[in-house]
Simulated assay, not measured.
Amino acid sequence: MKKTIQALKRRQRRCQGAGSVLCYWWPYALITGNLVLVAFLLLDAPVGSYVTRTPELLESVGETITDLGKSGWIIFATLLIFFEAIAAYRLSGRIKARCQALLVAHLAAYVFFSVALSGLLANLLKRMIGRARPILYDDWTSFGFHSFAGSRFESFPSGHATTAGALMMAMALIAPPYRLLFLVMALWVGFSRVIVGAHYPSDVIAGLALGSGFSVATAIVFSRHGLLFRQRQDGWPVLRRPIPLVMRPNRTNMVFPRRGIPSRPEMAQRAE
Rank of each mutant, 00 (worst) to 15 (best):
V204K: 08
C99A: 14
T162G: 01
K9R: 09
T218P: 04
I174S: 00
M185V: 14
F229Q: 00
A149Y: 05
F40R: 05
P157I: 13
A172V: 08
Y28H: 09
M247C: 08
A29L: 14
E272F: 15
A85N: 01
A132G: 01
R94L: 14
G72H: 12
A122K: 11
D138P: 03
T162F: 00
A7N: 05
L102P: 06
G226I: 00
P177Q: 09
R240V: 06
M171I: 07
L167E: 02
A186F: 02
S118P: 10
L43D: 13
Y89T: 11
A109G: 02
I95Q: 13
S151V: 10
A109H: 03
G72M: 13
P157K: 12
F222T: 04
L180M: 13
S114F: 06
D203F: 04
I195M: 10
D67C: 14
M185T: 09
R98W: 07
R13A: 07
Q12N: 04
V221C: 11
K70D: 15
G93I: 13
W236G: 00
F82L: 01
G197Y: 03
L37D: 10
S223T: 03
A29K: 05
E266F: 08
G144S: 12
S223N: 03
A186C: 07
D67R: 15
A85R: 00
T66K: 04
M169E: 05
R251Q: 08
L107I: 11
D138V: 08
R241Q: 11
L57N: 13
P265V: 10
R179K: 10
A109Y: 05
D44F: 10
E56G: 08
S71L: 11
G119A: 11
I75H: 02
P257K: 01
G190K: 09
V21W: 05
L107E: 12
W140Q: 11
L125R: 04
R230V: 08
L173P: 00
H106M: 14
D138K: 10
L58R: 09
F153N: 00
Q233A: 11
I81T: 13
W140V: 06
A217V: 05
D138H: 09
A170C: 03
T52R: 11
G62I: 06
I31H: 00
P242D: 03
F112E: 04
N250A: 14
A7P: 02
A166V: 01
P257A: 05
V38M: 06
A172W: 07
Q100E: 10
A109P: 01
F148S: 08
V238P: 02
G159F: 02
V184H: 10
R232Y: 06
A108R: 02
Y50L: 14
S215Y: 10
D203H: 05
L80F: 15
G197T: 04
V61G: 07
